[in-house]
Design a protein around this nucleic acid. Structure first.
Lengths: 215, 215, 215, 215
DNA sequence: CATGAATGAGTGTTCATTCAT
DNA sequence: TATGAATGAACACTCATTCAT
């Protein structure tokens, strides 16, 4: 609750034990979240049982409640993690690529990469139903909104004349649909060889952007 | 699993009471499946409770076991239903449209239409994880494989020179990804006005096909 | 478990099995309630555990839920039972004794008798705290209100000049306090020989009535 | 367990820090007991949760174990407190009033006052069941027994000819029943205006004593 | 003195399922 | 065909308590 008792030991590693404790706590918290993601995705919200989760991390169920208030808090934390990471990754990519069309392509590839690297988070964020949309939206508050990054990139491309400007909102959703579909296929569909995956992703993104190009 | 139906005695109002019975049985079976689809999707596999399901259809829980061996059988039957309907719809559309590119576009629109009209089935079929892949594959046996229909249409378009022939498998998956992404967005994302939905679907399909076109 | 099934009498007793079922159901319900009363009284509301209750009656916990919706329903049913029985007993006694003072004495004795014969119910009704007062009041709706019977008897005695008429409400409560105290002592205090109990009850009631007498 | 305290400055305010510590300890002990009384009464023995109790006093649960061995010890301490206070109050009142009948009336009023001022203790002492009788009796050892005070006052009144001498034991219990009933009603029953409460208490005590008077 | 971490036991309740009727 | 009764297993969650710090 408070903690940092100040000075105490005259010299050396002023908080040794306190810091160790905090680290241990953070570690276990992360371990719980990782296991929770797997179980949530494997069986949906109802598919995660606090008992199973505990067993999987080598603790007993009540221990989890020392780190998360309840089952919902677990899901919420995962969603928050996911939105934060995705938002930051997309923002970084957008900032790094100045050419409008290239930026869109890079965003698409990054989005797919996120989905593949964080499959659990991705499925929780974008492939489960509506009750949790609220939690999702709440979690999103004052963070980098992943969709907003895409939206701005589309607007930039449109105003640069690189793509049709007809209805930016529709174009944004259209691009999102394409990459979302890619992730969905890769996560749910039959396993593919890595080189075919790369071809699939590149082909799809290229086709969408070509198809949306002005002339 | 089931099977032994046939014979049905021979004489006397050949179907009167027996047929009525069979009809009633089929009706209740369908009613159960419809309710199960809703509950499955609302809460995932674990979100369906046999008790609730029974209550929703006005019977008691044990009655369901007269129609389905267990909870898994319900899911299995739904998947089978879904694959059959989707396969048949796609096949019908493909047969009706001879022009290769137009056929691909029509298939895409039909796929999206199916996803929107059978959201429960769609999510069970394509948006839930791996444990049920086996059931899915088993169910798919000796039916019209939806993906095969698309594959043939792509092959036809490629051999007609309407699209790039590079790697038909990749192109098939690419198109699937696009329409799958559309359905996913429409089912999970924020509600959109119908006209925007239409614009989104048409834009995406057109862009993909344009982008895949030869020159 | 038992077995006396046999006969299936061809005709007669048109509802034999249905009636037997209903009887069995009522029996078990009563058994549950009786055991619940003991546990509630022994440990208060929180002192009753559905598992213990089940074990005590030789069933498993879920079975109880086939008879009572939840733990609260058990308490509610017990309170209702108690209020009904007490109300009826007091009303019968009041109706049977026309002489005002004698009627009050008879009511007091009957009240104490009820408390001793239904110690569990009594403690639930009158010796546990407030949260359940609401349930109690709700249960009391449109039944014979035990207190009302006493109130009327006091009013009758007062208007007959048998006791001081000063404040009938206060006198009613005063008499109630005396008999309530008797029951409380008998239920909680040290065990007494039956003849001393009788002396105690008679002495107390007689003293109260004598003390309340007019002149 | 540890011990590194020692130093204790040598002189100056001989007990300063030790006494302060002892005082702090006693204060917290009292604070715990007060909070425990509330929780015990609100929810019965099982209604007190060490966690809640700790939170209510602004400490953590294990701290309570530094002051009380376990949950039972809390109850025991409360009972002891209650018996001591009640015994002392009754003894003081008895000593202050020489006139036998007036002394009995004063004892009755004091008993009721105690019940109203210490509702938590009172319910624990006199309105909960038998398991704790042992604790109660043990606690009572070598203290002023409240009931004994009443008993002596009855004996004094009887030998002074102020009340019937028939069976002093019965008369004692009878008086106790009356005041116990009053407290029970006031604690459990519907709230009454203060003036009606006073009337009720005075009426009941007066009636009992009048009814027990010799002639 | 006080606490954070942890747990075994237990809470009320719901589950899918079986079985005799 | 349909159901009422019943249960073993599991659910999320809270408990009193211990122990190392």
């Amino acid at each position: 609750m408070n903690g940092e008792r100040m000075d105490k030991p005259v010299l050396a590693s002023p908080s040794s034990s306190a810091a160790r404790r905090a680290q241990a706590r953070a570690d276990l918290r992360a371990k719980i979240l990782a296991a929770a993601a797997e179980l949530f995705v494997a069986g949906g919200y109802q598919g995660l049982s606090m008992r199973q989760l505990a067993e999987r991390i080598g603790y007993t169920a009540p221990t989890i409640y020392l780190y998360f208030a309840n089952k919902d808090a677990l899901l919420f934390a995962l969603l928050e993690e996911g939105y934060n990471e995705l938002g930051e990754r997309l923002a970084a990519v957008a900032a790094a690529e100045p050419v409008p069309i290239a930026r869109l392509a890079a965003l698409g590839r990054e989005y797919v990469a996120f989905g593949r690297e964080r499959p659990m988070h991705y499925q929780l964020m974008f492939m489960q139903r509506a009750d949790f949309l609220q939690a999702r939206l709440a979690a999103r508050a004052n963070r980098v909104d992943p969709l907003a990054v895409l939206q701005e990139a589309v607007a930039a491309a449109a105003s640069a004349g690189a793509i049709r400007a007809a209805d930016p909102q529709v174009i944004t959703l259209s691009l999102w649909a394409a990459v979302h579909g890619l992730v969905g296929l890769l996560l749910i569909g039959p396993p593919l060889p890595e080189e075919q995956i790369r071809a699939l992703v590149d082909t799809t993104i290229a086709a969408m952007l070509a198809g949306l190009t002005h002339a």
